[in-house]
C-alpha cells in the first residue's frame, strides 16, 4: 500500500557492507543541572556498518536519544569521538556541522515535527531545497504513498500520514544515514508496523543506513544490528543473523 512496499512474505535482503560508516569512540555526555551532573552517555563505543538497519533499544532515560542527537550533529558530546566515514564530526565547526546535517543525515522524530503552516509537499521541499543531491520530490511523495495528499497541511493528516511526510522529508534529502527517534512512538500498532516497513524498504531500496531508537523491545527483531542501552551505557551490541520482516512482529 505504500507504493513501493509490496508487503509480501519474501525475506528482506540486507545490503550491508563490511565498511564501518560510523565509529563511536568513548562518547560521553554530561548535562549540568544546577549542582547535579547527569551522565546521559558514559564512554560508549561501537561501530555501525554502511547499509545496516540498526535498532537501538533502551528504556526511557537510557541515553538513546542523546546518542542519536550526538550522531546527527544536533548536540555535542562532552568527550569522545564520532567518526563518520573516517571524519570526526565532534571537531566540526558550526558551519561544517550544518553542512553535515544538510547533506548526510535525515531525521525522523517521534512527534513528526512538521511545519504546521507548510503543506506536506512543502515540508519535504523545505529539506530538498538546500541539499546538494536530493531525490526527485514527486517520486519520494509517491513512494511514501502521499502523492494524493501532498497539498494537505499537517493538521489535515492523520498521525501515520504525518510520520510518512517526515520520512519523505528525511529520505528526499538522499542522505547517508537516516536517524529515527521513536518513529512509532506516537502511532497505533498497525500504523507503526507500516512505518517500520517503510523504513526497512528505504534501507533496502536506497541502500541507506537506518538507525532507529525505540523502547519497544519487539522492534529489535527487525534490525541487522541491535544495540541495547541502560543508564547511558551500551549493555549489548550484537548482529542479528536473521532479521524478521516488520510485518511479522507484534507488541
Amino acid at each position: 500500500m505504500f507504493g513501493f512496499f509490496n508487503g509480501n512474505e519474501k525475506p528482506v535482503e540486507s545490503n550491508k557492507t563490511s565498511e564501518a560508516l560510523i565509529e563511536v569512540q568513548g562518547i560521553s555526555k554530561v548535562y549540568h543541572m544546577g549542582e547535579v551532573d547527569v551522565h546521559a552517555l558514559k564512554e560508549s563505543t561501537f561501530e555501525i556498518m554502511e547499509g545496516e538497519f540498526v535498532v537501538i533499544l533502551g528504556p526511557s532515560g537510557s541515553g538513546k536519544s542523546t546518542l542519536l542527537n550526538v550522531m546527527g550533529g544536533m548536540d555535542s558530546p562532552t568527550s569522545g569521538k564520532i567518526l563518520i566515514q573516517g571524519e570526526d564530526i565532534t571537531t566540526f565547526s558550526d558551519r561544517r556541522l550544518t553542512r553535515y546535517r544538510r547533506n548526510q543525515v535525515g531525521f525522523v522524530f517521534q512527534f513528526y515535527n512538521l511545519m504546521a503552516n507548510l503543506t506536506a509537499r512543502e515540508n519535504v521541499e523545505l529539506a530538498t531545497e538546500i541539499c546538494d543531491t536530493p531525490l526527485p520530490l514527486d517520486e519520494v511523495m509517491e513512494k511514501v504513498g502521499l502523492a494524493d495528499r501532498a497539498g494537505h497541511f499537517p493538521s489535515q493528516l492523520s498521525g501515520g500520514e504525518q510520520q510518512r511526510v517526515a520520512i519523505a522529508r528525511a529520505v528526499a534529502k538522499n542522505p547517508l544515514l537516516l536517524l529515527c527517534d521513536e518513529p512509532t512512538g506516537a502511532l497505533d500498532f498497525e500504523t507503526g508496523v507500516k512505518i517500520l516497513s517503510l523504513l526497512k524498504e528505504v534501507n533496502v531500496t536506497y541502500g541507506k543506513t537506518v538507525i532507529i531508537i525505540t523502547h519497544n523491545m519487539p522492534v529489535g527483531a527487525i534490525g541487522d544490528r541491535v544495540i541495547r542501552m541502560r543508564s547511558g551505557e551500551i549493555t549489548e551490541n550484537k548482529l542479528n543473523e536473521s532479521p524478521v520482516n516488520p510485518e511479522r512482529i507484534e507488541w
Binding site: 558550526d94 550544518t98 515535527n113 512538521l114 523545505l126
Partner: peptide
C-alpha cells in the same frame, strides 16, 4: 523554537 530546531536539523544555517 521547534521550527528553528527543525530547520537546523534539516541543515539550514544560522
Amino acid at each position: 523554537r521547534m521550527g528553528i530546531g527543525i530547520m537546523k536539523a534539516l541543515g539550514y544555517s544560522n
